[in-house]
Design a protein around this nucleic acid. Structure first.
Length: 841
RNA sequence: GGGCGGUUAGCUCAGCCCGGCUAGAGCGCUCGCCUCACACGCGAGAGGUCACUGGUUCAAGUCCAGUACCGCCCACCA
């Protein structure tokens, strides 16, 4: 083809130019005619679509993309879909704030409702269906933004293979998998105490908990003994005295031995409760005897369950103490009335006042800082509320299953390998089955109805299920098979499950969603199990584990062969507090400032799985590299059109190609081991040496004519073609640009460089290393003399062993030209170079 | 309380698995150079008790034990 090398090449505009071309040409389109072993399938993480992307996201995705590009060039057809995780609480919360709305499922659908330009103030209540429509509306906008950012970063995703975790296909897949779990007994519902977020009014799973340090206080409170004395307990939650069902101490604790089997009276309310023994009670904590309430913490739940204590709950799903006086407090209605309707923290103050008045608070509360359980997205401490929920068995209560899931973790190839222990520890430490139901609105409905007996009682133990061709189904608006909508809520009829599934219950099926398990068996067979699951370390316990669980149940295999866990991005300001830039660093802004290839360089510069500082300095280096690729390409392509590789005859040219072959081999080995950063480092180091040493050495000869010049041209072009491809996974924009100057087709669909393609043209590498040493020595002399590199050398003496002398002689003409010396005097001996500069004019 | 990762030049990081010449890179800094691809460049240079304490070894940044600090994850809120 005709070469078109621009006069002043620049990085500006490459992003838009090539994104458009790749889209037009379908460069990254997946070819589904390929077979499983020709395909490299990636289970891409669907980013949470609720606001803007963080630099941390860009970091991991770029690393994966570099690997994807390598696989594509080395002959695999890459299945590289992209999903959007838009279902779930983050979206709901964003919609609430963005439009100023609240969902009230009791309201009827308003078909004329339109999204407001300004948020409603105060917030407006809207129906469930209207709320869901707003969620769809907003996420669609966000997803366009996200796609733009990914494209700007050059992710080689097949943009025809996208999904959203709330779309029909995902809902169908999720519901089908759930029903399969249900049919096999892996999913079940149960009425039990669960951790509950009072603001979201929803149950929360173990994986979504986090501890936060909070100010609290320990209160020493006296319970009255029947023999007239008292027993003092310590608690941080005195407001729960009204829920107290027992006191507990360790069976071996002699201080309380005489109390076991006796009863005591609660302060203020005077409720008689037993004193019991349990090994979980710790003599060292507090006074060694604790009150058991229903429920203050997970310990209470354990004690309550194991000691079969009564339930005396007062906290409602909205977090308030129930307004009605509980029957067990009917004799103390006045006291309870002071707590009715309050939140825990308000009730605590009130209770302390009552205890102070009654003299049962033994001393001033002592302030402490202690860990309190929060929903990771929540704002107030979790309460424990009893309710009916859906679970999927995860091995927490089944040793055999736990062993199988641990074995899956061992079977999985972890990159880096130390991440595997996080999985192991999580599975080992599970305390309960996976709670998947949420009392929310924007999510995949649990596809279940319950029959109502003729007596009007709902039968939760015999749920009704949809037919598969009905999926996706919404049980709150559609009737179950065999029923009519008019029978909803009536005796002899049915009631639909109002709960939805947690996001993870759907995103644990990303391989099945992206691979179209439910509706495209042909595709499914070609991509599953997938090759890699790239993801962040913080969601090993959630996304990775739950995906393994679902695949284990449904397919009896691991969902992927390898998982690559990216590192964490460290905020640069955390260490440099003095330098406050005031600007939030966004991917879009950074791409604009440094260019996409530079941002990618930064991400790929970080070792796999290693936490990395956000460092714009590294991006500048990446930008410099991209510019160098541009200029070196311009230089090389300025010489004669395609010279036959067989023209490479000069020993130093063959030496260079031999070194390059080693580089190609090392980079390939690194990529095969998922070490994109090593591959980049190797290519980069070699490239700079190539431009600074080899190119400078042969430049003079290349400007000439004849066989020697043709040898340089051929070698330069061969090397350039290799470097352009070596950098393609990292710097897709600039490499595509320079490739287009002299070659047809996308560089990203070219074969990865191989040693065999240079095989017959290589020589003795040390010819180049020896010549470089001489060149460096002369440069040093000139630099110390503070003269130009063009300054003439009047004498050049080289002392070396006979072999080296022979090698240097073979490149003498190039050396004389590069050093501007008239000739070289050789002598045998230790390697030494003596250069005398000609008198300066 | 348990676990994982980290601590190497002013800064950002390689090197550690498989111990071995004066410990590397880039940025920054210093001194130079408009050399016909590139001044968004090129050349040269200074700069490190490899966190600390012991141990193994002819030899330790590298292996072992422990300590300190940083980050992350987990843990029953008395």
């Amino acid at each position: 083809m005709v070469r078109r090398v621009p006069e002043n090449p620049s990085l500006e505009g490459l992003e838009q130019k090539w994104d458009a071309v790749w889209e037009r040409d379908g460069t990254y389109r997946f070819d589904r005619t390929k077979t499983r072993d020709e395909i490299f399938a990636i289970d891409t993480p669907p980013p949470t679509v609720s606001g803007s992307l963080h630099m941390g996201s860009a970091f991991g995705y770029v690393q994966t993309d570099a690997h994807a590009r390598y696989r594509r060039m080395s002959g695999r057809e890459v299945f590289y879909p992209m999903g959007w995780d838009d279902n779930g609480l983050p979206t709901e919360r964003r919609v609430q704030n963005y439009y100023g709305v609240r969902c009230d499922p009791s309201l009827p659908y308003d078909p004329d409702f339109t999204p407001p330009d300004e948020p409603f103030d105060p917030p407006k209540s809207i129906s469930r269906q209207n709320f869901i429509e707003l969620c769809h509306h907003l996420t669609e906008e966000d997803e366009k933004q996200f796609e733009q950012t990914w494209r700007a970063l050059g992710l080689s995703v097949d943009w025809t293979q996208t999904y959203a975790t709330i779309d029909d296909h995902s809902r169908r897949t999720s519901q089908k998998a759930f029903l399969a779990n249900l049919a096999r007994g892996e999913a079940y519902s149960a009425e039990a105490p669960v951790l509950w977020d009072i603001d979201f009014r929803s149950a929360v799973a173990q994986a979504e908990l986090e501890d936060r340090e909070r100010q609290g206080a320990t209160h020493r409170i006296a319970f009255a003994r029947t023999d007239g004395g008292d027993v003092v307990i310590e608690t941080t939650r005195p407001e729960l005295i009204c829920s107290c069902v027992a006191l507990v101490a360790h069976p071996d604790d002699e201080r309380y031995a005489d109390l076991f089997g006796q009863t005591v009276r609660t302060p203020v309310f005077g409720v008689e409760v037993p004193v019991v023994a349990h090994h979980l009670a710790e003599p060292d904590k507090g006074t060694g005897i604790a009150m058991i309430c229903t429920f203050g913490d997970l310990n209470d739940v354990t004690w309550w369950r194991e000691l079969q204590l009564p339930t005396r709950a007062v906290i409602q799903p909205d977090g308030r103490f129930q307004t009605e006086t509980p029957e067990w407090l009917s004799h103390a209605a006045d006291a309870y009335a002071r707590l009715a309707g309050l939140f825990s923290n308000q009730a605590r103050k009130e209770m302390v006042e009552m205890l102070t008045e009654s003299g049962e608070l033994k001393e001033e509360p002592k302030p402490i800082t202690h860990p309190v359980k929060f929903y990771e997205k929540g704002e107030r401490p979790l309460e424990i509320v009893t309710s009916r929920q859906w679970y999927i068995r995860n091995g927490a209560r089944d040793e055999e299953l736990k062993k199988e899931l641990l074995a899956r973790g061992d079977e999985l190839h972890w990159v880096p390998d130390f991440m595997a222990v996080r999985y192991k520890h999580w599975v080992d430490g599970l305390t309960g089955d996976w709670l998947i139901s949420r009392q929310r609105f924007f999510g995949v409905p649990i596809p279940i109805w319950y029959p109502i007996g003729d007596d009007g009682v709902v039968d939760y133990d015999n749920p009704l299920t949809p037919d598969e061709d009905q999926l996706p189904v919404d049980p709150t608006s559609q009737p179950p098979p065999g029923y009519d909508e008019s029978m909803r809520g009536k005796p002899g009829g049915f009631v639909g499950e109002a709960d939805i599934m947690d996001t993870w219950a759907t995103s644990s099926l990303t391989p099945q969603i992206a691979g179209h398990w439910v509706d495209d068996p042909d595709l499914w067979e070609r991509v599953f199990p997938m090759d890699i699951r790239p993801q962040g370390p913080e969601i090993i316990r959630t996304w990775l584990f739950s995906t393994v669980v679902r695949s284990h149940y449904e397919h009896g295999i691991l969902p992927w062969h390898t998982t690559t866990i990216n590192g964490w991005i460290l905020d640069p300001d955390r260490k440099k507090m003095s330098k406050s830039r005031g600007n939030v660093i966004t991917p879009q802004g950074t791409i604009q400032e440094f260019g996409p290839d530079a941002v990618r360089y930064w991400a790929c510069h970080a070792r796999p799985g290693v936490d990395t500082a956000l460092d714009t300095g590294v991006m500048r280096i990446g930008r410099r590299l991209a510019i160098k690729v541009l200029n070196a390409s311009r230089f090389v392509l300025g010489f004669a059109d395609d010279v036959d590789p067989s023209a490479v005859s000069e020993p130093v040219d063959r030496a260079m190609l031999a070194g390059l072959a080693d580089v190609v081999e090392a980079a390939t080995t690194s990529f095969e081991a998922f070490d994109y950063s090593r591959a980049l480092e190797i290519a980069e180091q070699s490239f700079w040496e190539w431009t600074d040493d080899y190119v400078e050495l042969v430049k003079g000869r290349a400007y000439g004519v004849g066989d020697a010049a043709r040898s340089a041209h051929a070698a330069l072009q061969l090397a350039l073609g290799v470097y352009q491809r070596l950098f393609a996974p990292f710097l897709p924009f600039v490499t595509e640009e320079v490739w287009s100057w002299w070659r047809d087709g996308s560089v990203h669909r070219q074969p990865w460089p191989s040693v065999t393609e240079l095989g017959g043209l290589t020589g003795d590498v040390s010819v180049l290393t020896d010549a470089t040493q001489v060149l460096a020595e002369v440069r040093r002399v000139k630099s110390e003399a503070k003269v130009s590199m063009r300054a003439e050398v009047s004498e050049l003496e080289i002392s070396a062993d006979p072999g080296a002398i022979e090698r240097i002689r073979s490149v003498e003409a190039d050396l004389l030209e590069a050093t501007r010396a008239p000739g070289i005097t050789y002598s045998e001996g230790e390697f030494a170079v003596r250069a005398v500069l000609a008198p300066q004019v």
